[in-house]
Amino acid sequence: MNAYLQFATKEAREIVYTWRIWVLPAIMLFFAISGPVVARFTPEIIGAVGGAGLDQLVLPSPTYLDAYSGWIKNLSQITLFAIIIIYGGIVSSELRSGTALLVLTKPVSRTAFVAVKAVVNCVFVSMLLGAGTLVTWAITAAIFGPAPPGPLWSSAAIWLVLAILFIAIMTFLSVVIGSAAGASGGGIGAFVLLSVAAIWTPLSDYSPAGLAVHAAALAAGASTPSLVWPVVTSLTVSLILVAGAAALFRRKEL
């Protein structure tokens, strides 16, 4: 257990002391701040861009739900892409640089090496999501007045399950594919596949494919079917992917 904690501490400190502390937090903070502002001024922006041609178009007044929807939409697209790209080398980067050799010839199992990386980065993304959602919530309240927490936090929680799934997918792909770019390509393929699968309602309601759609619906204040199945299947698939990654990594020649 000591080695697990020691390695987890290293992973956490690596986030703080390297570029990792800037990229994802900057992306999420940008959307957390800009989302409510963009939502508030969308009618004015459209009017300015459209000019006289859109004078007859009457847009409904924006509400806090538009700010929430903007936040979740940005998380489900650009932030998820960033996660896919950043975590393409979650395991393989240490193999390529050679740092894994010094760790794996010490009393650290390969399972621990893979699992700790996945867990620490899930915690990191959770913390960023919490902070970002808090910022969005505060700015939304400042701009729109009352901002009920339910739709925002429930949709953020569903997105977190999706983010965990993608960190697990990237962990698996990073073990299978030695190149970070190759693994990211695979991750984008998985994203497209899930997006397409979400079109079919049974898959959307019972599998990870529906998470993004349901998160968006929750943020918009719409009703959704029970999300137990998508959440349970997503977390189960995430566990299987990380366990599979660890099993493959144990058999890998370094």
């Binding site: 000591n2 080695a3 020691q6 501490t9 690596e14 390297t18 740092t99 010094l102 760790v103």
Partner: peptide, 27 residues
């Protein structure tokens, strides 16, 4: 104890931090 032919370290650490990390892995 093992030294590979081209040892690679975490560049963001100092020597003391790396030895602390390595020692911690041995308990």
């Amino acid at each position: 104890g093992f030294l590979p032919d081209v040892p690679a370290f975490y560049d963001w650490m100092t020597a003391e931090q790396f030895l602390d990390f390595a020692g911690g892995l041995f308990g």
